[in-house]
Structures are given as structure tokens and as C-alpha cells.
Computed example of a mutant assay.
Amino acid sequence: MRGITYKNVWKRLLDIMGSFSLLVILSPLLLAAMALVRLKLGSPIFFTQERLGLNGQSFRIWKFRSMTNCVDEAGEFLPDEYRLTRFGKLLRDWSVDELPQLWNVLIGDMSLIGPRPFIAEYGSRYTTEQMRRHEVRPGISGWAQVMGRNSIGWNQKFILDVWYVDHCSLMTDIKILLRTIPIVLGRAGVTAENHATMPKWVEHEAPLEDRPAE
């Protein structure tokens, strides 16, 4: 009962207070990042995309743009490695591009801690077990983030996300928050191996069955 109360009541209140406080404290950094993105990459300053959130409902995520809008002859975006600039890589390395998601947390789309929100088109491919990751709000950081971030495979991310749903508590969130800080400062796991960012999820890597140990 205590865990349910935290997940459904106290967690949201902490998200509101935390995101509002961070938006105020980090406002100089946010303004500086906005100016630099406009100078280095032009408009738009923000990148938005439909992602799946609580109960599988879609929402629009906000990030600082880190790539150019270069397209090929067919009008399709070039691969990430051709569009990711040195400045954009710097934003990603230090997770500055993720800071606008504090607004998503404040308005209730996201939580400070939870499974990372995947793009909406993946929703139709989920197994019933994988869909359980949407029993909580998605987060800016999460259990999968501190256990490897983009250096781990897709199926492992699903396993870790469902583990978080089953173990969501104040102590778990504090543990994840404390682990997030050195990972961000150490710029660990920002990209997948041999990729500029993270490869798209094409198909299930393996059945989602085992639970990771704490």
C-alpha cells in the first residue's frame, strides 16, 4: 500500500516541486543553451517528437535540437552521424539537450525518474509484458539509464524498465538519482557502440522474461 501511495500520489508531488525548482535554478543555462542552439543550428531551437507515456498515451517530448536538418535527394533526413554536429554532440554528451523535458515533468507528461519514453511508433510492436513499462510515467532518468544507458540492447532496456515498475519507491528513485549524477558527469553510455546515437528498434531481440537483480 505504501508503494502504491508513493507511485500514485507522492511521486507526482515531488516531480512538480523538483521540476519547478530545477527550471528556476537552471534558467541561466537553459537561456544560454537556447541562444547557442539558435546561433549554431538555427531554427527551430527545440526538437519535438511524439512519445508514449503513462498508460500508453502519446505526448510531445521537448529537447534542444542537436542535429542539422540536412536531407537527401528524396527529402529524407540523412543518417544521424551526418547530421550530428560537434556542438550537438557536446549537448548530448553533457545531457543538456534533455533539460527541456523538465517542462514535460512539470505539466505531467513525464516524471523525473522512470523508463525513458520511446517513440510512439514502437507501441504497436510491444509484447504485453513490454507494455507494462507504461504503468508509470516515463522519466528523464531511469533504472535502464543508470544500468548502461544507450550502451545496452533494447531487450535489456525493456527488462530493466519493467523491473522498475515492480520496484518503484522513494528509495529506488533516490538510488537512481544518485547514480545518475556521476553517469552524466562522466558522460557514460551516451551512444550505442558503432552508432552516433542509438539504433532504431527494429524487432524483438529476445523474449522478455528474466528480471535483473537489484
Rank of each mutant, 00 (worst) to 15 (best):
W94P: 11
I119M: 07
S95A: 15
P100K: 01
Y82E: 15
L102V: 06
F118D: 14
L52N: 13
L54N: 08
D72K: 10
R86L: 08
Q101S: 07
L90I: 14
F77P: 14
L99H: 12
K89W: 12
S124T: 14
R86N: 10
P44L: 02
L84Q: 02
R116N: 09
R51C: 00
D97N: 05
G123L: 01
G56W: 04
S111M: 05
T85Y: 10
D80I: 11
R60M: 05
R92N: 06
P117N: 04
S58E: 08
L78W: 03
G114P: 02
R83P: 07
L91M: 06
G123V: 02
W103P: 01
R86C: 10
G114C: 13
L102H: 02
Q101Y: 07
M67L: 12
T48V: 01
F77E: 10
F87P: 05
P115H: 07
G53Y: 05
V71H: 06
M67N: 01
P79R: 09
Q101M: 00
Y122R: 05
T85W: 03
P115R: 14
V71Q: 15
L54T: 10
A74E: 14
I45K: 06
Q57N: 13
P79E: 09
N104I: 00
Y122A: 10
L54K: 03
F59Y: 06
K89Y: 12
R83I: 06
N69M: 11
S111E: 01
E121P: 10
Q49F: 03
D80H: 12
K89P: 00
Q101T: 09
Q49Y: 06
V96A: 08
R116G: 08
L102M: 08
E50Y: 02
R51W: 06
W103K: 11
G123W: 04
L102W: 03
S95N: 15
G56S: 09
Y122M: 08
R92A: 13
T68G: 05
L84G: 00
S58H: 09
G108L: 12
D109V: 01
G123S: 14
D109R: 03
A120I: 05
A120E: 07
M67D: 05
R60V: 07
D97L: 03
A120D: 13
L54C: 04
R86W: 11
P79Y: 08
E76T: 14
P79C: 04
Q101E: 14
L99S: 01
C70K: 15
F47H: 02
C70P: 07
D93G: 13
D93F: 12
V105W: 00
L91I: 13
C70F: 12
G123P: 04
P117D: 05
F47S: 00
F47V: 01
P117C: 06
N104R: 07
D72R: 09
P115D: 15
E73M: 12
L102F: 08
G108V: 04
N104H: 02
T85P: 06
E76M: 11
N69A: 13
E81Q: 12
S58C: 10
I107K: 15
R116L: 11
L54P: 10
I107S: 09
R116Q: 09
F46W: 03
V71Y: 11
K89M: 07
L102K: 02
W103V: 15
L84F: 04
K63V: 08
M110S: 14
D93Y: 13
W94Y: 15
R116V: 13
T85F: 03
T48H: 01
